[in-house]
Write a protein that binds this DNA or RNA. Structure first.
Length: 579
RNA sequence: GCCUUCGUAGCUCAGGGGAUAGAGCGAUCGCCUCCUAAGCGAUAGGUCGCAGGUUCGAAUCCUGCCGAGGGCGCCA
């Protein structure tokens, strides 16, 4: 609807441009907005004010000329010039009434568009280290990333979602050792479990599972593991890792390591699937080492002249690309750095030919943004192809008390706990309600104890109420929508006009959400739509009105039901028929 | 110290160059013989952190300051 009006206005500007009133940039200034107040019509444009200087005439005069050049249209009832030079458009009631059938015919496709032009977008999100279960902070990234992917798909982008598994490096070694030590305990050995190892009970579960499967196969002599360890706890755990590797041998260590990795990745995958988040691909960091992409990307960087050597290490000249310091990619001991993996991963992504790549990071990773962008560019890619979006942390509270979020300490609220206690729908909607760059106070007590106050129920209830009306229609043997084409001109109530306006707006909301990567706009729209519906429901009867009116109203609320379900689907929230 | 996000009603948050700044919760007062009261209506509540600047027009953009969260390693 909006795009049709905008087209008319663009046509008029084009006309005046052809007549030499303004230069070729004028079309960019065409802007059209929904009015906040119906006194100003349905849509308003400030284009006359923006272009007045260029046309060397006053805004109101220019607005007059623009209106004269508007093409005829059935959509527009009248136009007027208001205030300093706004052009207000009043639409015909037919324009609005036609929305009902449009929604009902297009059904789950209503609101979808082709603005994405089939461009290939890859969205990478969550990507938490598989060193423990997901916590509620990851939940926010999951809910956000998945909603972005869904909204992009709806807007006509070809979307690929991916989880990057950090399954290489020291943290994973610490995980493997944590599992091994718990396993030794099960086998009756005395171990000194490092304070900076992974303390959670899930480690014991993995160890128990391993014990069942492999019996005593990895029972190394524990006494040698803990003699004369360094004082510093980081050095100490590195030494324990080394001794475990030596005692077990590379291939057995790999088995223990994979035991932890696989169980945790499976657990994360299941957890997310239950949350409604299903990735198209799980991409392994270790794979980058094995397929040579890490070496390849470093050599591309060298070929492009962005590498220098210092004290035996290879450095990327990141400062040439705006990063604050240069970065080591290959250490003097021949090991590549964690950053080198990240660079290689983005090299790999770019090679796969996506038009656009989105990285969704937790705000705690924002320090990596400039170095990743720098390396991406240094590898010869257009930096416009990559956007790194930051999701702020959810700060957890129990009542007024802040909850500590240390993963290694094992003291954290898991996503699974949250889902079990407040439900998937409430959890997803709660996350969806905040824009990603907003800090979020997540009061667990509130979310758990007062979950019926969660706005998701308000929206789902609107959907269920409509379904209930249709059920009773059948029970009472009344005429239904399949019995005839309703005459929508009978819809003359204030709430009916408001609903029509809301319905016509949905495609604009989807498009805006997609372009700005802000699915929370959908959530707020749905709250509005549900509110307008509930008011209508309270003010006017459906079943007890006379046949023709009832039919028209049923058509309207059927369209509302469809848009509610469509919108909830974009957020990964269910639309129940009864509550 | 540097980087980054934020500061809007008592609380949690929308709006992010345009006309009189919004919602939910909380408060007060109403509405179920009637399609689900998980609902609706009404009232009260704001110097949009502070100060400059750009603009015909700033809560919105820019700069500085104040306050809050997060990040800074030949760590992963």
């Amino acid at each position: 609807m909006k795009s049709s009006i905008k087209l008319l206005l663009s046509h008029s500007v084009q006309q005046l441009q052809n007549n030499g009133v303004f230069d070729r940039t004028a079309l960019d200034a065409v802007n059209l907005e929904r009015t906040r107040d119906t006194k100003h019509g349905d849509f308003a444009s400030n284009v006359a004010m923006v272009l007045a200087k260029q046309a060397r005439c006053n805004p109101r005069k220019l607005a007059e000329m623009l209106i004269e050049n508007l093409p005829q249209s059935d959509l527009v009832e009248k136009t007027e010039i208001a205030g300093p030079g706004f052009i207000n458009f009043y639409l015909t009631s037919e324009a609005y009434l036609s929305v009902i059938d449009q929604v009902r015919v297009e059904a789950e496709n209503y609101g979808r568009s082709r603005v994405g032009e089939g461009k290939r977008v890859m969205v990478e999100f969550v990507s938490a280290n598989p060193t423990g279960p997901l916590h509620v902070g990851h939940g926010r990234g999951a809910a956000y990333g998945d909603a972005v992917a869904r909204v992009l798909r709806a807007a006509g982008y070809e979307t690929h979602s991916e989880y990057y598994i950090n399954d290489a490096g020291r943290q994973m070694d610490i995980l493997a050792v944590s599992v091994l030590l718990r396993y030794l305990e099960i086998n009756g050995k005395q171990v000194q479990f490092p304070e900076n190892g992974y303390q959670g009970d899930y480690i014991k579960d993995i160890a128990a599972n391993m014990h069942e499967k492999y019996q005593q196969q990895f029972c190394i002599d524990e006494t040698a593991l803990f003699d004369h360890l360094p004082q510093d706890k980081e050095e100490r755990i590195d030494e324990v890792i080394l001794r475990c590797k030596n005692a077990l041998g590379a291939s057995d260590f790999r088995i223990v390591f994979d035991q932890g990795r696989d169980m945790l990745v499976d657990d994360i995958r299941t957890d997310l699937a239950e949350f409604g988040v299903v990735f198209q691909e799980w991409f392994s960091e270790r794979g980058l080492l094995e397929n040579g992409d890490i070496e390849k990307s470093i050599s591309v960087l060298e070929e492009n002249g962005h590498v220098f050597e210092k004290e035996g290490a290879k450095w990327f000249k990141a400062t040439e690309f705006g990063d604050e310091k240069d970065r080591v990619v290959m250490r003097a001991n021949g090991m590549h750095t964690y950053f080198a993996s990240d660079m290689a991963y983005h090299y790999n992504k770019a090679e796969r030919g996506f038009d656009k790549m989105l990285d969704i990071f937790g705000a705690d990773h924002h320090g990596y943004v400039s170095r990743i962008m720098s390396s991406f560019e240094a590898l010869g890619n257009d930096p416009q192809r990559l956007s790194i979006l930051l999701v702020q942390f959810a700060v957890l509270y129990r009542g007024s008390e802040k909850v500590s979020m240390s993963t290694r300490g094992g003291d954290f609220v898991t996503l699974r706990e949250l889902r079990e206690e407040v439900g998937n729908d409430a959890a997803r909607f709660f996350y969806a309600l905040r824009k990603p760059d907003q800090h979020m106070d997540f009061d667990l007590d509130l979310a758990k104890s007062q979950s019926s106050d969660n706005p998701v129920y308000y929206i789902q209830y609107a959907h269920a109420r409509i379904c209930s009306v249709f059920r009773q229609l059948v029970e009472k043997g009344l005429k239904t929508l399949v019995d005839g084409q309703p005459d929508y001109r009978l819809l003359k109530e204030k709430q009916e006009a408001e609903l029509l306006q809301m319905l016509s707006k949905f495609p604009e909301v989807v498009e805006l959400s997609a372009k700005s990567y802000e699915p929370h706009q959908i959530a707020y729209y749905l709250k509005d739509l549900a509110n307008t519906f509930h008011s209508y429901y309270n003010a006017h009867p459906f079943l007890s009105s006379e046949d023709a009116t009832r039919l028209a109203r049923l058509g309207l609320i059927d369209a509302v039901r469809i848009v509610l379900a469509d919108g909830l689907e974009l957020l990964g929230v269910s639309a129940p028929n009864t509550m």
